[in-house]
């Protein structure tokens, strides 16, 4: 195994282009755990720690927030810049693992691993985030929703690095929330839900919802969102949205809960996220 510590993105991309089966080392929270379990033994580690420009959170004039791939979960959890419709991303970051994990793990590393029970994927899909990917030849952007393609599978090709995640300002006056149900504090989600809502005189005029832990990728269902838009977010509307989402999910059976159980509680977790987001949207508007 080789170890590279590039200081520029260009160098890093070059190594990745030339090394077969090299892996980027971001925070290590997932990759090193897999290496320790002997699940992975890459030919080379390409540390991104010294690469300039990959960490940090920037708020743009248009209200979007760009989070560098090497930004630690704790930094995202601490940033007040993520507010309104973006707040759920901060909320999700604060629920990842435990303090030491949040000090290590990075947003780029987390989404590249693409565990559907992780917190970022669901939050980013809900927030309509864009993932910026670069390789030695080109740079491209892809919607979070299209970035996650399967269990631990993403749109990343060999040689690609996630360099940033951008969260658009979204709808004015929106409130958002991320709700998670896990066996114990800090565990991956059994079920999670992200919600962005905007209200006008108590009526929902915008809704974006995703649920996590219930399929190979975060699940969004347009019809479920449509159930909320135009409603006053009464229980029946939220429940109807939950039913539509549950119908689109295909959860695994594992130690975090059976497939059936996940579907049983999904509407509740969604309802809790909606009610939190609603209070926040009401405060904004």
């Amino acid at each position: 195994m080789k170890f590279y510590q590039p200081t520029t993105l260009k160098q890093a991309l070059k190594v990745l282009a030339n090394e077969d089966d090299a892996r980027c080392l971001a925070g290590g929270a997932t990759l090193v755990a897999m290496m320790n379990a002997n699940l992975l033994a890459p030919s080379a580690l390409v540390s991104l720690s010294a690469v300039k420009g990959l960490a940090g959170i920037t708020r743009r004039k248009n209200g979007s927030v760009t989070i560098g791939a090497m930004t630690r979960h704790q930094a995202v959890a601490d940033t007040a810049a993520l507010d309104g419709g973006q707040r759920l991303v901060r909320e999700a970051a604060a629920l990842i693992g435990h303090p030491a994990i949040r000090n290590m793990g990075t947003i780029g590393g987390s989404i590249s691993h693409a565990d559907p029970a992780a917190d970022y994927p669901t939050a980013l899909v809900t927030a309509n985030a864009t993932v910026t990917i670069e390789n030695s030849r080109a740079k491209r952007e892809i919607d979070a929703q299209n970035f996650f393609t399967g269990y631990l599978e993403t749109a990343l090709e060999p040689g690609d690095i996630v360099v940033a995640v951008s969260i658009p300002a979204g709808v004015a006056g929106a409130g958002s929330a991320y709700e998670k149900f896990a066996r114990v504090q800090g565990d991956f989600a059994t079920v999670s839900a992200g919600v962005v809502l905007a209200l006008e005189k108590g009526v929902c005029r915008h809704a974006r919802i995703a649920v996590g832990g219930c399929a190979a990728t975060p699940i969004r269902v347009a019809a479920a969102e449509a159930k909320l838009v135009g409603s006053r977010l009464q229980d029946s509307a939220v429940a109807a949205a939950g039913v539509l989402l549950a119908a689109a999910c295909d959860p695994i059976d594992d130690f975090r809960g059976s497939s059936e159980y996940r579907l049983m509680i999904l509407p509740t977790i969604l309802a809790r996220a909606v009610s939190k987001a609603r209070v926040r949207a009401e405060t904004v508007s």
Binding site: A37, N38, L39, L152, I252, D254, F255
Partner: peptide, 9 residues
């Protein structure tokens, strides 16, 4: 060691 649930899928 890989998650049983994901393995089944």
């Amino acid at each position: 060691k890989f998650g049983l649930g994901m393995m089944k899928k």
